[in-house]
Amino acid sequence: MGAFSPEMRERAESLVALYPERRSALIPLCHLAQEEAGYLTQPFMEEIAELTGTTPAEVYGTASFYDMLHTEPVGKYLVGVCTNIACLLQGGGELLEHAEQALGVAAGGTTDDEMFTLEEVECVAHCDKAPAVQVNYRFFGPLTGESFDNLIAKLRAGEYDGVVPPHGTLVRVRRENGIEVPLEEVFAERREMDRAKAERKAAAEAAKAKEGN
């Protein structure tokens, strides 16, 4: 019995089919596992290894490189406060301190009720609205201590349920198309394109030579 549910397994297989080599689907599949389980558990890593033709160790080794892939449980909401240069200049450092006090955890920690994991994050490219905060990679900002508290209260009360999915669900828009043209067919088309290109080049050179005469 696999870790992915039948529906997710189907989505996983369609992701693998998008790439010329199946290992390329490894990271998208890790996101998919997080969508189903909230974080990457060992059974998921084993199934991803099977799907991508790698070993569970390779999946773990790859996943551990990336900030967004979690091999330990995280809260329902991953709250990232940016303190990089643009946010720092607008009070990002102070906002992070406030967030630590408001949530009662240091950056990196999860609240006892498993609702929130707080992170100090690197630039999230919202520098014109600094200091920036992301909740499950959905942007909020610029925030003050007060508006941060409001955001947390609303998240707790479920008021953002439609806007911010639980941690793990990254992209809610699904790809509607598989690969329409198999690679072998495209390669044949490209060989034909290259042949036509060579012909045009030869014809142009011949015309030039004729002109030269």
Binding site: H31, Y66, M68, V121, V124, A125, Q134, N136, Y137, R138, F139, L170, V171, R172, V173, R174, R175, E176, N177, E180
Partner: peptide
């Protein structure tokens, strides 16, 4: 970039529309 959740959604929607 993975952190661009909204961007990923809009770009995927655009690709769906373009297909």
């Amino acid at each position: 970039r993975g952190e661009f959740a909204l961007g990923l959604e809009r770009l995927q929607a655009a690709v769906n529309e373009a297909y």
